[in-house]
Design a binder for these strands. Structure first.
Length: 580
RNA sequence: CGGGGCGUGGCGCAGCUUGGUAGCGCGCUUGCUUUGGGAGCAAGAAGUCGCAGGUUCAAAUCCUGUCGCCCCGACCA
């Protein structure tokens, strides 16, 4: 249907909105695609709606092609489904909760595993029914602690979520691979540049899991990539390569040195090298960080000490991923008061066994390595504290920060580090979820078969923002053709019959199957129309202006910036060709 | 929840230090002129200055409280 600027419900803004920081947010608001209603909650205007629908259509098309079947669950859900799996309480503040007039508890669905599982359980009961994959495209609601960056991270967002149900592990692998292929096709069609990275499976358990990350500077996820072998992983999923163990006999004597006023690694290194006969760096020190770990659904917290090389910080995200489902929290002054054995700033692992505190170390802390660490007395540190001789870790943990230049766990080359936005996640759930739900199929031998599941998501509204994030320039948006609100933006400007001609050409192009936006606003200056055309971002722009008198119009490529004059007589053919 | 900033027509902002008639740009309405890079002139419409309380003859401005929003960190598509 022809979009005419003279009647299109659209107002572009000349100034950037004050509350928008990231490019996608700024441009989508300025160009009149979306408007904010509340924090993390947005309305879609006609042009934005078109883009959203286009993205949705691509996602739907690829899901249908891989054989998934679309369903739709309500967003408004009774508590019961989530209570059965314990998530009514586990989800905590993230859930939007509400009550009906009788006082019964409801929620706005943050995700729909329960509903999918329940539906399959209700309809299917024979092994002959499987495998099956269902999906829906629907709004999700999460009361995020901090919504940000416009529709990149909202509290209401459109998501495609699908679930595969298989009888065995091979089936699950096939379903997973099908999704992977479908996602690759989807994101390729959407014109998004992305990277597939290994991910942690998180608290849900399960095994294989990969994320589709769109690299952007405003991304919230950190991931590493290896140029040499192609390995890529979310920072939380990167594993550290342990050096070989060393013979303990080679290590020197443990010595305790006076190191007054050295509560930090920096002050410690400085003090030792100036006042003692050592020549160490932060990497030679062993930093011991105390955390308390809560177990969900229990009041118990465990005190835990993490040992990492002193030149690295503990990455809390990595720590959480490693401890999941346990939830670590910082050990505060009040906690130290309860543990007199832990001398803040001077903690060494030598005494942890006696204190009954679990000690997990970075994989670099292998048997035979000697460290500079706390002597468990104020103002004293110990050197030549040897793993396997002076202390015995209870295990290793991936908690130290990952840095550019770290070794690739697969090939040993240097890793690079980047930021990205998660646009898709594919995940082999396995049977953990089906176990909870009791999802079985009756097998040929009359015995029940526990179903194994996969879970797969695409952030549809987020994808719109990601495209805007990746496809824009100083002038405005530059939509990939497949998702653009229109193929071509015809600007009619001039005192003569330019607008009539523009409308005629628009009609002709439409009859050829192109989607057309035409600027037929009278009495709007050319400058305004050009600026708007560039801001709105249709991939092809046609200008019908002063050249019309001599029978030429202008064809512009919004992506390359190329401009060429073409005879009016050839206009329809040439424009159609440009949009092909 | 921790830290930083901001609430003044639809949008972007000034005014607040030093209380006294609420202002600018964009947008909007009307008329005339203008039409290839966000036009000109003229005339208009539109704001209980986030909310509540206090000080004062007088509060957008000072004081107290409160609510909201945005940005940076811990969660996630």
């Amino acid at each position: 249907m022809l979009l005419r600027m003279s009647s299109l419900f659209l107002r572009t803004l000349r100034d950037d909105p004050a509350d928008a920081e990231v490019p996608s947010h700024r441009l989508l608001v300025r160009a009149g695609y979306v408007r904010r209603v509340a924090p993390g909650i947005y309305s879609w205007l006609p042009l934005g709606m078109r883009v959203l629908k286009n993205v949705e259509a691509v996602v739907r098309d690829e899901m249908d092609k891989m054989g998934a079947q679309e369903v739709l669950f309500p967003a408004l859900l009774p508590k019961e489904y989530y209570e059965a799996t314990g998530r009514w309480s586990e989800y905590g503040d993230l859930l939007f909760r509400l009550k009906d007039r009788k006082g019964a508890d409801y929620l706005l669905g943050p995700t729909h595993e329960e509903l999918f599982t329940d539906m399959v359980k209700g309809e299917y009961s024979s092994y002959k029914d499987y495998p099956v994959t269902l999906y829906q495209i629907q709004n999700k609601y999460r009361d995020e602690a901090r919504p940000r960056a416009g529709i990149l991270r909202g509290r209401e967002f459109l998501m495609k979520d699908s679930y595969s149900f298989d009888l065995d592990d091979d089936g699950l692998k096939r379903s997973y691979e099908q999704h992977r292929e479908a996602y690759i096709k989807t994101f390729d069609r959407l014109g998004i540049s992305y990277k597939i990275v290994f991910a942690t499976s998180g608290a849900m358990g399960g095994s294989a899991s990969e994320e589709f990350l769109a690299p952007t500077p405003t991304g919230e996820d950190t991931f590493v990539a290896c140029r040499s072998c192609g390995y890529a992983a979310n920072a939380e999923a990167v594993t550290t390569t342990a050096p070989p163990a060393r013979p303990i006999e080679d290590a020197g004597e443990l010595r305790v040195l006076d190191t007054p006023n050295t509560p930090t690694i920096e002050t410690l290194v400085d003090h030792l090298n100036t006042h003692h006969d050592t020549s160490i760096t932060a990497a030679d020190t062993l930093k011991n960080v105390v955390v308390k770990v809560a177990t969900p659904g229990s009041d118990k917290t465990e005190t835990l000490v993490i040992g990492v090389p002193g030149d690295r910080e503990v990455d809390f995200k990595r720590l959480e991923a490693s401890l999941a489902p346990g939830e670590p929290a910082i050990f505060e002054a009040a906690d130290f008061a309860k543990h007199p054995g832990l001398v803040r700033g001077y903690i060494g692992p030598q005494v942890l066994k006696d204190l009954g505190i679990r000690y997990l170390v970075d994989p670099r802390v292998v048997t035979g390595t000697a460290w500079v660490t706390g002597a468990n007395e104020p103002g004293k540190h110990a050197v030549n504290v040897v793993a396997g001789r002076d202390f015995f870790p209870d295990g290793t943990i991936e908690a130290a920060e990952v840095r550019a230049g770290d070794a690739c766990p697969r090939c040993g080359a240097e890793l690079s580090i980047d930021r990205g936005i998660e646009i898709g996640h594919i995940f082999q759930l396995g049977r953990k979820y089906a176990d909870v739900a009791g999802l079985d199929a009756l097998g040929p031998d009359g015995k029940p078969i526990r179903i194994t599941m996969g879970s797969y998501g695409i952030g549809v509204s987020r994808a719109v923002a990601v495209i805007a994030e990746q496809a824009h320039d100083q002038l405005g948006l530059v939509w990939p053709r497949e998702v653009a609100p229109a193929d071509v933006h015809i600007v009619g400007t001039g005192k003569d019959n330019q607008i009539e001609v523009a409308l005629e050409l628009a009609g002709e192009l439409e009859s050829r199957g192109l989607r057309v936006l035409v600027d037929d606003r009278p009495s709007v200056s050319p400058g305004v129309k050009f600026k708007d055309a560039e801001l709105l971002g249709m991939p092809t722009i046609v200008v019908i202006g002063r050249g019309l008198a001599s029978g030429v119009i202008e064809l512009r490529d919004r992506v390359t910036g190329d401009k060429q004059e073409i005879p009016l007589a050839e206009a329809a053919d040439r424009v159609a060709a440009a949009c092909a």
